[in-house]
């Protein structure tokens, strides 16, 4: 464990807490893409299956459980508890277009062709694009709630590096949309 990873983990933790807190207190999940949250739950589920097979440390186990539990809790809040406030008409990204290529790529490009390794690789690929439904939603509505952040560590791993670069580009796009649409309040409007 180094300071960068710890800060990354804690930022992630805080981002999730802010998101859950905001949904809970506003009693609304307007502006949040349920589809992105489903993809993140899929990312954590496919990556943290090693919870069953390998014990690393109490910190590691608790963080993995927290990320899993909080992503399923977010899905519950969006699709069950505050379903009425979920903006599903604007959350129309076809997630199969992200899941299927990620599965295919994980089957083709991986370090080792084994069940857990392919799932781990799938989770890395999927994480890099899981924000796309949220990005799509912001570009349509010009609204955004909290953004969850994700990170990669400086481990020389080509799969993680390429996925990280793709993810960074997408997040830059998100930042651009946030500035131009959300902060400046410019909404695209169709002529009457």
């Amino acid at each position: 464990m180094n300071i960068f990873r710890l800060l990354g983990d804690l930022s992630h933790l805080i981002a999730i807490i802010i998101l859950l807190h905001k949904i809970w207190h506003s009693r609304s999940c307007a502006g949040i893409s349920g589809k992105s949250q489903v993809l993140f739950a899929l990312v954590y589920t496919s990556r943290y299956l090693d919870l069953i097979t390998t014990y690393v440390s109490l910190y590691n186990t608790l963080m993995k459980i927290f990320f899993l539990a909080s992503s399923y809790a977010t899905i519950y809040l969006i699709y069950v508890k505050f379903r009425a406030t979920y903006d599903k008409n604007h959350d129309t990204f076809r997630i199969e277009f992200l899941i299927l290529p990620s599965v295919l790529l994980a089957l083709l490009i991986n370090h080792q062709f084994s069940f857990l390794e392919v799932l781990w690789t799938f989770s890395i690929y999927l994480e890099s694009v899981a924000i796309l439904p949220q990005l799509f939603m912001v570009s349509k509505t010009g609204e955004a709630e909290s953004i969850t952040s994700h990170y990669f560590e400086y481990h020389y791993d080509l799969i993680a590096i390429v996925a990280g670069v793709v993810q960074t580009v997408l997040y830059c796009d998100f930042f651009y949309l946030y500035i131009t649409k959300v902060l400046k309040g410019k909404k695209l409007q169709l002529p009457a």
């Binding site: 983990d9 090693d50 590691n60 390794e117 781990w120 690789t121 890395i124 791993d157």
Partner: peptide, 10 residues
């Protein structure tokens, strides 16, 4: 090193 060897990473 494979991805699943990195058990301590989140």
């Amino acid at each position: 090193e494979s991805g699943t060897d990195l058990h301590d990473e989140l």
